[in-house]
Design a protein around this nucleic acid. Sequence first.
DNA 1: TCTAAATACTTGTATATACAACTATTGATT
DNA 2: AATCAATAGTTGTATATACAAGTATTTAGA
Lengths: 151, 151
Amino acid sequence: MSLEDDIKQDKFQSEQHKAAINIMFTSSWLHGINASYLKKFDITPEQFNVLRILRGSHPKKLMLSEVASRMIDKSSNCTRLVEKLRQKALVQREICKDNRRQVDISITDKGLTLLKKLDAEASLMKGIMDKLSKTDAKELNRMLDKLREDN
Amino acid sequence: MSLEDDIKQDKFQSEQHKAAINIMFTSSWLHGINASYLKKFDITPEQFNVLRILRGSHPKKLMLSEVASRMIDKSSNCTRLVEKLRQKALVQREICKDNRRQVDISITDKGLTLLKKLDAEASLMKGIMDKLSKTDAKELNRMLDKLREDN
DNA sequence: TCTAAATACTTGTATATACAACTATTGATT
DNA sequence: AATCAATAGTTGTATATACAAGTATTTAGA
């Protein structure tokens, strides 16, 4: 479905303007697909992202601000996100002995087991994204990176 | 700044996978720029979007669900969004006489005046998006539309 | 005409973002 | 050692999304 149909608009000021809307619309669309898949496992895309970050460093712990800096979405909410994962016993929190300001987070076995079950999520995304060739995807990445230059 | 630096990740499973993350990251980045600009005018990007939709149809009123269907972001929240604009006297709500289930929304003069002041927002976005040539933007739109095909 | 279904919108709850103000701890300066 | 600034997190408030359940009104069918 074209963007014009999706948001019932038939003209944009320019291709560039349309592209801005298209990026945001497609992002929201991707997020929605992800969310609805992950919901069956009682987890949100944001929580899923944190779990993957922690698996990436496992068995090394990460301090909260390290988790935050690796998050895709803005990370002001990191404390509360991690707290929700802790309540589900998917991660562990502990005050760092060397620096008691610091909170170290690690993924639990239960968290690792859950992630294993969620490998299908990767396939789902792959199914969508592989509509683009590797060359196209590279081009897309180039353009998006270019937009974020400077500023 | 490259995506790798932005989210402190140095490898992705594929260019396609990276593109998915890049779309969501760039969307969030665009939203943030917009939000911080609009904040000075005590309005959010979502509310701004609704105002522009209403200016587009002005002086014709739109029923709530028509507004919703034109929104970029998901529209389950339309009632509350419009209510916030109404509290600021930027839009007007009235029950439709012919069909009392229906709520007709229109932009007020105050809303139109505010939008005029916000034309600079368009320039701000233009400044960012014009880093892409028209050809590039067209290509970007083609790729994003392709991702959303079917599914 | 009475009832059931469809339509249009509203409201409640859980989750998330943004931002600002706050606490606690550590490091640095005098 | 005492103080001040920097660092690391936490918490409160406003806004937004998603979803589900709710109300009110209209339409369609028996």
